[in-house]
Amino acid sequence: MKWEDLRRSKNVEDRRGQGRSSLGGGMGSGRSGGMGSNLIMMLLMSKGKFKWVLIGILLIFLLGGGSSLLGGNQSPNQTYDDSGVVFEDATEKAGSDSQITDKEGQFLSTVLASTEDYWTSKFEEYNLVYKKPKLVLYTEGTMTGGCGFGQSSAGPFYCPGDQSVYIDVSFYRELANKYGAPGDFAMAYVLSHEVGHHVQQLLGTMDDYQKIAQQNPGAKNELTVRLELQADYYAGAWARYADEQGILDEGDIEEALQAAFSVGDDTLQKESLGYVVPDSFTHGTSKQRQEWFARGYKHAGDFQEADTFNRDI
């Protein structure tokens, strides 16, 4: 991807190096555990009759949820509210574009800016206003503004509560080395997929998903697959825009398709379990993820064609 001379987004907050210093990040971290594990141990040793209730509340607080590329232990159907988390001013804490000097951070900032340009224009076609999401770069784990404590082990994820995408940049290398999807546009696909979840949030798709999943818990996995495939469609739509802007290199689309294949439920389960459990799928098969990315590219983001909830997938 020809990105070096492109505009970079100002909607980036860099928390890398802060590690697990936020409340909630202490569970299982460091030599002595941390605040989360210490509080639980204190409650376990206490004799109060309400200690188990308090432990439950603490765990709910520490283990939040978002919509992740890989699934992990997060859930996009959580009810989100204002957690009271106040982010530090980006101009004062390495969050502005001018202070991000590493190549990976600058690259992600550029991709985010390109998605901003595309979705602003696409929303205007439908007489809608696109509210730009924030990209938070972090290391190991960080507190979100509505989805609890986010951890890099879950992969990149989107939090509807604060309308932010969270990425541990180490996933850039993990995508190539662990998942067999090298190349800068493979990572661009990852970010554009998470931005696709932001589009769903703005259009009300996530709210509709939540309501239906709560009414019919047995259909939750299938609904989640449809939600994720739609985000892949939106990623493909942005890729078409980037291609038309003349900023893609030869082989970039193939890199994105390989990334989509690598994070398919069936591929991940075969590698980790040695077999496949279709009823447990939450993101779609490798073939489905590739197909819906390709559809988004083909139809240039047409919202009617994006309706994964009323089409065969």
Rank of each mutant, 00 (worst) to 15 (best):
K2Q: 08
L6F: 07
R16N: 08
G17F: 14
Q18T: 15
G28S: 08
G36K: 02
I40D: 03
I40V: 13
S46Y: 12
S46N: 12
G48L: 06
K49F: 05
V53C: 04
V53I: 14
L59A: 14
F61A: 15
G64L: 06
G65D: 09
S67K: 02
S68C: 07
L69D: 04
Q74L: 12
S75E: 06
S75R: 07
Q78F: 11
D81K: 09
D81W: 11
D82I: 15
V86P: 04
G95E: 02
G105L: 04
S109M: 06
Y118E: 02
T120A: 15
V129K: 13
V129Q: 12
P133Y: 05
G145V: 03
G145E: 05
A154F: 11
F157A: 10
C159D: 09
P160H: 01
D168H: 04
Y172Q: 04
K178H: 11
P182Q: 05
M206S: 11
D208P: 02
Q215T: 09
L227Y: 10
L229G: 01
Q230D: 10
A231I: 04
A237G: 03
E244H: 03
G246T: 08
I247Y: 04
A260R: 02
K270L: 07
S272M: 07
P278F: 06
D279G: 05
R295G: 00
G296M: 03
H299N: 14
D302Q: 04
F303W: 12
F303P: 06
T308Q: 12
D312V: 09
